[in-house]
Structures are given as structure tokens and as C-alpha cells.
Lab assay of single mutants.
Amino acid sequence: LRGKKKEELLKQLDDLKVELSQLRVAKVTGGAASKLSKIRVVRKSIARVLTVINQ
């Protein structure tokens, strides 16, 4: 992550946020259990990207 440019990080952040919103919709509509663990992974990925951006 640290080797990427800021523009790439921001694009990745947008993609992750879109994916997270889709997973939340799937959870509300009764999605599979595998998607519940994926939510945690995506949230941590967002946190990692934000950490690198803010450093």
C-alpha cells in the first residue's frame, strides 16, 4: 500500500466503500454467512488505506 500514489489509494478507498455498502445490503436481505466475515475484512482494508493516506 505504501508504494502506491495518493490517487490510486483514493480510488481503492472508493471501491472498498462501494463494496462495503453492497455487502451491508446483502446482509440486510439475508445474505450468506461468508459475506458477514467479508464485511470485517473490507472494513479493515478501508482502515489500512486511510492510515496510509493520513501518514
Rank of each mutant, 00 (worst) to 15 (best):
K44G: 02
A47E: 10
V42W: 11
G3H: 07
G3Q: 10
K38S: 04
L16W: 13
K4Y: 06
E8V: 10
R43I: 09
K27D: 00
V49S: 01
L36R: 02
A33D: 01
V49R: 00
L20D: 06
I53H: 00
V52M: 10
N54T: 10
K38T: 04
L36H: 02
A26P: 07
V49Y: 08
V28F: 12
Q12Y: 12
K44T: 08
S45G: 10
R2M: 15
I53K: 00
K17T: 07
S37G: 12
V42H: 01
T51I: 02
L36Y: 01
R2T: 11
L9R: 02
E19W: 15
V28Q: 02
K5R: 09
S37A: 13
V25I: 13
V49W: 08
T29S: 05
E7K: 10
T51M: 09
R40H: 08
V41H: 09
E8W: 15
D15W: 14
V18C: 15
L1A: 03
Q55S: 09
S37C: 13
E8A: 11
V49L: 11
V49I: 10
V28K: 07
E7F: 14
S45L: 11
R48P: 00
L36D: 02
K17Y: 07
R2C: 07
L16I: 03
K38H: 04
K11H: 05
L50F: 10
I46R: 00
V25K: 08
K35I: 12
K11G: 03
L10Q: 04
L13G: 05
L13R: 02
V49C: 08
A33L: 15
L1V: 04
R2A: 06
S21A: 09
L20C: 02
G3K: 12
L36T: 01
L9K: 03
L20S: 06
L10A: 04
K6V: 10
L13P: 03
K6W: 13
K27E: 09
L1C: 06
V42T: 08
L13T: 03
G3M: 14
T51Q: 11
D15L: 13
L9W: 11
L50P: 00
K17S: 05
G30H: 14
I53L: 09
K44M: 02
S45W: 14
K17Q: 03
V52P: 00
L10D: 03
S21M: 08
D14C: 13
S45Y: 08
L9F: 11
Q55Y: 07
Q55N: 12
L10R: 07
D15C: 14
V28P: 01
R24Q: 15
E7Q: 14
S37I: 10
A33G: 05
L36S: 02
V28Y: 07
K5Y: 15
S45A: 13
L23H: 01
D14S: 15
A26V: 14
K27W: 03
L50D: 00
S34T: 11
S45E: 03
L23Y: 02
D15H: 15
L16D: 11
I46P: 00
G30N: 05
L20V: 06
D15R: 15
K35G: 08
V42M: 07
K6I: 15
G3Y: 07
V25Y: 04
V25N: 07
K38D: 01
A33K: 11
K11D: 02
K11V: 02
